[in-house]
Design a protein around this nucleic acid. Sequence first.
DNA 1: AGGTAACAGGACTTGACAAGTCCTTTATTC
DNA 2: GAATAAAGGACTTGTCAAGTCCTGTTACCT
Lengths: 134, 134
Amino acid sequence: MMELTRKGDYAVRGIVYLASQPPDKISLLSEIAAAVDVPQTFLAKIFQQFSKTGIVKSFRGTGGGFMLACPADEITLLQVVEAVEGPVLPNRCVLKPGECERDSFCTVHPIWLQVQKQIRDILGNVTLKDLASS
Amino acid sequence: MMELTRKGDYAVRGIVYLASQPPDKISLLSEIAAAVDVPQTFLAKIFQQFSKTGIVKSFRGTGGGFMLACPADEITLLQVVEAVEGPVLPNRCVLKPGECERDSFCTVHPIWLQVQKQIRDILGNVTLKDLASS
DNA sequence: AGGTAACAGGACTTGACAAGTCCTTTATTC
DNA sequence: GAATAAAGGACTTGTCAAGTCCTGTTACCT
């Protein structure tokens, strides 16, 4: 249970690669895909999402490619995985109060909230800088 | 991301109901299903799994049904969800060392291990007794 | 023994979503 | 305007979630 999808896994690989490059270098999608061993067409979709959520900047045309939108130590693992996988939600009922008609008497509800918080805490405290320095 | 399936959700509901009943009462599947608002045929599958992993005892025939196999304070939420959802695995690479050919240099690996441990810690420290007393 | 109550187990269905692929368009540079 | 590279949409394929249904097996009851 609780598994990350391949998309999430690939997303992390790809952006960690970006973070390990010189800060102002623009990397080609083809280069990233080859380096982290992910199908290029699939990685393209992932980086489009990154681009939309603003954690990477993209440039088209000759000399184009991708680079981080901010310094590696200002992007957390949480931002990366939530960008492609959506918010961390151990159970639907955690979405918001009232979402689940059982929540008034559901004793498990607070446990899921606690799980959600812990996961977010861990992932939110790891930056790309931490991950890139290997 | 990280969502529990309905099966897992239903599993928790069902067994918490059992835990809230008098310790030696045998409950009918039909009774449990109605009480927690889950399709009975689906809940049947779930309780079969519980039965196989030994956290509930089942009895066939007239007067049959289900009861907890041990006291409610000896069954953890972790046991319940892992019984039906499989082990807590934030990423496939956490399965075991060597599973992922990238793990020797993958800096994210320890993070997933940490997430896994935290989730297991939280769920492993909540018993059905805690959940049944509402 | 026969009938009925209740769980066990297998086969099947339906729909959604994961995991990609492919093609066309748009933006940029030379 | 030709080449380069990302953006975006449409499509495919397979797997798995979420059930349903039917038959079998076990246990009790008269």
